[in-house]
Design a protein around this nucleic acid. Structure first.
Lengths: 255, 255
DNA sequence: CGTTCGATATCGCCT
DNA sequence: AGGCGATGTCGAACG
């Protein structure tokens, strides 16, 4: 249960550490990797991905992370997103390429089975290799999402308008659940779509789809009137135009 | 230009390393951080985020990455996504909290100015602290995206249908650019929307919005006929229903 | 499994 | 800076 940290190890030393940390060896130069917690490496490498799309990344120094759930991440020194990755459930192995007597590359290979995709990270030099074995049972506690907007409206329906009566949360339609389904003070059916941030035309289309689906479902029995209300902090101009064209309404509400 | 790597440093040693690596000190116990390439740390910490939403994460061992562009990432031992983060452009500092004589916490604070959001990472123990200074000029070369589908169709228009004539790529509408705008063998106007993966109802709505916008723009001058074609590897059932209702068409094409 | 949609989405392009 | 759409989007909830 001790972390292993190597500074500027040779490719062979790196391979041996990965080998020592895991009993299942494929061949003398191929080693399955199962991280206990995380394996973190920083080194000079080249990256190739082949799958639904394909990509290549020329040599450079970057950070590679292998997680215990099979996630693989490659981070350059900018941006929030990994330049290449493999999602959870992938399997990892290390391959030591030898030319004559000398190891030339240490390849970390990550394979995803469905869809079949392969990620190859070929190291020429390794500046840092660490096998980290910490404990982490904690789970994130998040508030301020769309769900909490809905909770607030259910508790205080006149945030939408005076006399609004919510009936059903997440009411099912063929195109997905309506956020809040209710009636206004006159008895008209009201479909509410919530967004936690400024909305564009896509949200208007989404609301329209729900209304059309419900209208088709219910209007055959009774001749009800339908209103659609988009609830968000703000709305773009083009979305406002579309909204008015479609006879829908907007209510401003912060998350 | 040498990497600095500490294994199981004290909070004070960690703070001193960060201090040594950067000349601008705010106070004796507050230190601005500007990573040359990346700062990578693994330790026992608690995380709080307050901004558009807010979150808290109880103590556990996790990986923290600070990048030179101001990105901050916190990774647990599962999933592709960071549990907390700050996007590029944020500013980082280290704060050593002292109770009596003893340091109790090393806080890495990341602040984003617009919108104003603060991320606090409070370390109790540090298992690994590394200041990494590699070089990476390489850029990702990706193929197989939506753009390449468009290129293929422009070169070989009958992938859409016999006699299709593309006229304009990315033609502007008030709701965004139409992927391919053209005519069929009868002279009807054709609006093509490309998707590199299986499409749902949102793509149908998107295509319909474009057609409506173009129809409004052009039909006043001439009485043209409009066709909308969704091009993707496949389509979901509900999207197919919606598509037929709207009088639109589907062509299957792999990316 | 597939479908659908939210996200502290991020990112890039264009106006 | 804001609008808009793509992403190898990811992730969760539900059928």
């Amino acid at each position: 249960m001790k972390n292993e940290i190597l500074q500027n190890p040779s490719l062979e030393e790196s391979f041996d550490l990965l080998k020592r940390d895991n009993p299942e060896t494929f061949f003398h130069n191929r080693q399955r990797i199962r991280a206990r917690s995380m394996i973190v490496s920083f080194g000079y490498c080249q990256v190739d991905y082949e799958g639904r799309a394909s990509s290549s990344l020329d040599f450079g120094d970057r950070l590679v992370i292998l997680k215990k759930d099979g996630t693989a991440l490659i981070h350059q020194n900018e941006k929030r997103e990994p330049v290449n990755w493999q999602p959870p459930g992938s399997s990892h192995e290390a391959i030591l390429k030898v030319e004559g007597e000398e190891p030339t590359d240490l390849i970390l290979r990550s394979v995803r089975s469905n869809p079949f995709e392969v990620l190859d990270i070929a190291f020429r030099e390794i500046h840092l290799l660490s096998i980290l074995k910490g404990e982490d049972e904690a789970q994130l506690n998040l508030s301020g999402s769309e769900k909490s907007m809905g909770n607030r409206i259910m508790k205080q329906p006149d945030l939408i308008e005076q006399g609004f009566i919510p009936i059903e949360r997440e009411k099912k339609t063929p195109f997905g659940p309506v956020d809040i389904f209710g009636k206004d003070y006159e008895g008209n059916i009201v479909v509410v779509e919530l967004k936690r941030r400024r909305v564009g035309p896509d949200a208007v289309s989404q609301l329209k789809r729900y209304i059309n689906a419900l209208r088709k479902e219910e209007s055959e029995t009774k001749g009800e009137n339908f209103r659609g209300i988009l609830v968000a902090p703000s709305i773009t101009d083009s979305a406002k135009d579309l909204l008015e064209e479609e006879g829908l309404e907007f209510v401003s509400l912060n998350p």
